[in-house]
Design a protein around this nucleic acid. Structure first.
Lengths: 255, 255
DNA sequence: CGTCCACTTGACAATCGTCAATAGCAGTGG
DNA sequence: CCACTGCTATTGACGATTGTCAAGTGGACG
């Protein structure tokens, strides 16, 4: 039918988290670069400050390593400190849907179930703050304020899942690409100064699986946008030239 | 691009909840037909039993009435008791994505924000158990056990959103339809005996907007499946004949 | 220098969207 | 009772978008 057997990494190259991850053993919270953004931003400051710090551990995952595997035991939760993590789901026949990309400040493993519902892979090396889900659960049951913050974070995730469903079901290719570039830029801007330069640590295939098209279509559309002076394709990313037009393509696409 | 201005109901026909909804004023929880399924099933039995009952009110919404409107004030949360509610999101240019269909036992308004992220419309007349979100919030802050159940419900919603993203991005039309019919059958079966007959209270356009295709494609594909003796199209629904083949189409599609 | 990948580009084909005509059905009103 | 209207659904013809297949480029790395 469509792309059968797209991009499942050869298992040989895919290291499991335990082999690959390197514990940094630094103190977790104080001086953490994402304290202002994610769960810690709203949490560490408020009361149970270093309780969560004592339960978590700063770690580094190398590129292509698997933080969570779909169907595998969901032992850990992660707070991304630097780098990009790709979240995906795979059909039995190999077709893959990329659900999203987690950047600094994003939290993984919110659902707190004992089985992972998705796969999380590091794109390039990634620093995380890792903790046991069981500890997270206990903490949540003790403090309903904490719990309600987890709830709120999940509400955000659900909302962006809904936006993504809209994108997948009802937008055309150029629109998809424009949305993708602009939203990626926006997300990264939570931590860095906003810039016309957008890093793309993922492959074209990853982008394709995120947008529900093929890698050829992604490549062609990016080329077309470059021809039209909307973007410039640079190594490992793009530079956005005509942001106005891109935003117009992304939101209305009313030609 | 695709279908511009699909199916936004003429506002004249769309009654607002306050005009249309009829309070039944029955005692909420005892004898409620969905006690065993949704939030109440795991809640009313356990401690805060009739606390939530006292805060909620049984109501009837007529067909086409709007329970929540995207961007509107999110005053209420709902527990669906009977009927079907369609959840959707609309782009500024009118394109619509149907996010899902809520049936008996499903809960609406989990996010507890003060603004609705989506629109909920009754397909045919619907009975709900309605409560103030503010009450829900208070209740949740008091009992972290309750809160964690809300959290778990939202985790389920997120998971099915992920499945739907997979469907929208990576499945072909026949596959989409087969998945749709089978999952609808499955969901309704939580409350009724499982049956080859599947009611379709929504229009073809609704199905199309749910699956990310056009209404013509839905119609054609259903006709084709009927020609192939997989289903029979009956008034307001279909009857599934060859469930094995349908399941094969839905999960692997490996011909 | 050669291999491996990711990416690009082209040619072609298939799916699915668009446009249009028609059927069926319910509700309305003469 | 029967047009008449409006809506939903079906079906066909056609075309555009996008997937498939294939070839080729360029960079990284051994």
């Amino acid at each position: 039918m469509f792309d059968t057997a797209t991009t499942t990494l050869p298992q040989s190259q895919t290291k499991t988290s335990e082999q690959a991850a390197r514990a940094a053993n630094k103190p977790a919270c104080p001086g953490c670069p994402v304290r202002s953004v994610g769960i810690c931003g709203s949490l560490c400051g408020s009361g149970d400050a270093d309780l969560i710090g004592s339960l978590s551990r700063r770690m580094a995952y190398p590129g292509r390593s698997v933080l969570m595997e779909e169907g595998g035991p969901g032992q850990f939760a992660f707070n991304v400190i630097s780098g990009t993590v790709m979240l995906s789901k795979t059909l039995p026949d190999g077709r893959r849907q990329v659900l999203g990309f987690a950047v600094a400040g994003d939290f993984l493993g919110l659902s707190m179930r004992d089985t992972n519902g998705l796969t999380a892979v590091a794109l390039g090396s990634v620093e995380v703050c890792r903790m046991q889900r069981s500890h997270l659960r206990e903490l949540a049951l003790q403090s309903s304020k904490f719990m309600s913050q987890l709830h709120e974070m999940m509400a955000s995730e659900l909302e962006s899942a809904h936006d993504h469903m809209m994108l997948l079901g009802r937008r055309g290719v150029e629109e998809k690409i424009a949305c993708f570039l602009l939203s990626l830029r926006q997300r990264v801007a939570r931590r860095q100064a906003i810039s016309p330069r957008v890093d793309l640590p993922m492959t074209r295939q990853d982008i394709a699986d995120y947008l529900g098209v093929t890698l050829e279509t992604v490549s062609r559309t990016l080329s077309k946008m470059a021809r039209n002076r909307l973007i410039v394709i640079v190594p490992d990313g793009v530079r956005l030239l005509d942001i106005d037009t891109l935003e117009q393509m992304a939101s209305l696409k009313a030609n």
